[in-house]
Design a protein around this nucleic acid. Structure first.
Lengths: 204, 204
DNA sequence: CACAATACCGAATCAGCGTTCGGTATTCGC
DNA sequence: GCGAATACCGAACGCTGATTCGGTATTGTG
């Protein structure tokens, strides 16, 4: 829910929502490139075409943008992850699907993800980020659960399951740092490669 | 080389260097916790026990601290990596040694590493960071070279060598985010786990 | 058309921050 | 011990940058 009094008239509401999403996307791109603190509101206004005051029709403040960016990143990902985990496919297949969706999402929203990574310390420390934190934890819990079920039914083998999970998180979270749109590898190929490494012990 | 006129008198020079290192270490810790921009100079003075002006006997400015932190992180690591790569052990052994040293270093200097990760966008964009950038690249080149030699002599097998390298970078760079001193796993165990995943294709 | 509601403007404000600088206390080396 | 170098202090400065607010133009709706 956008913050400073979204218009009630339906015709305007559509415009408003679209413009707001546009603003958030622009912010994500700028933040990813120059950093959150390194990006001034005037750079933002320049990039959006709005004037200083105009921005504040769409956001409450600068950090509102950060929250919006994280939400756009985590909400759909978490939802998709829940869908995949709810199906009754074997754990190995669920993991592949999960990682594929995850990598695709992270590549698609790499700007959002870069911002999320950079501002991690703020996210982990401050009050207002509770929801973002719990979304992140929920996603990691789903991953861990899939690995645990795979280990339990013998379809996966880990020297140390927790370490494998953390390694996977590392690989995927680092991906936005180097991936380029139209690069040599597709998101699916990247995901498959990661899965192969994590499932190393498993004979395939 | 520290910046604002280090004392020439030897007795004082020792004190000076020690105090400066102390300041940098404190800064690394604070920056890792609250972010570079999120940490004010007054918080820094509070943590060091110095007063506002006193800090500037040891540093040129705030971003001088960032450079110092990156140097303390990268210089010794790169040196060690070069040593390991210079020995004529088989590539697989070199990789294990490299990753072990790397993980140990990153765990030991996790605050430095967290700062390095957070400020990455600034580091990649701005002029004065050239040296830091080239150190990072040099280290990655050493890693890639070991993997390439292993692939060439058949002692390692990769579905995609570049992806394996990037995955490894991801795992290790992410480690400071979760590792705790005195945690369940030692740096060596972590490193061994990472190597096993990267060397998956290789029969061991 | 008319009048709300809405969209946007942009100069002014205000707080916070990094940095400076004149001064004082302490320390080393001759 | 004397002088010069050094260590440190802390109030003041200047600036950047987020946010505000009164005003104007535009837009949907009865």
């Amino acid at each position: 829910m956008p913050v400073p009094s979204p218009p009630t008239r339906p015709a305007l509401r559509a415009r408003y929502d679209a413009r707001r999403r546009e603003v958030v996307a622009t912010a994500a791109e700028l933040f990813a490139e120059r950093g959150y603190d390194g990006t001034s509101m005037s750079e933002l206004t320049a990039a959006t075409g709005l004037a200083a005051g105009g921005l504040y029709h769409y956001i409450e403040g600068k950090d509102d943008l950060l929250i919006a960016i994280c939400d756009e990143l985590l909400e759909p990902l978490l939802e998709r992850a829940r869908e995949i985990a709810a199906e009754d496919a074997p754990p190995v297949e669920q993991l592949r699907a999960l990682v594929a969706a995850w990598v695709a999402h992270v590549v698609e929203h790499r700007h959002h993800m870069l911002v999320f990574t950079q501002e991690r310390q703020a996210i982990e420390r401050e009050r207002r980020w509770r929801r973002v934190r719990s979304q992140r934890r929920a996603f990691e819990a789903i991953l861990d659960d899939v690995l645990a079920r795979g280990e339990a039914d013998g379809s996966m083998t880990f020297a140390d399951r927790r370490l494998s999970l953390l390694a996977l998180l590392g690989m995927v979270n680092y991906t936005p740092q180097w991936v380029r749109p139209g690069g040599r590898l597709s998101a699916d190929e990247i995901a498959a490669g990661y899965c192969a490494m994590v499932l190393a012990g498993t004979d395939d």
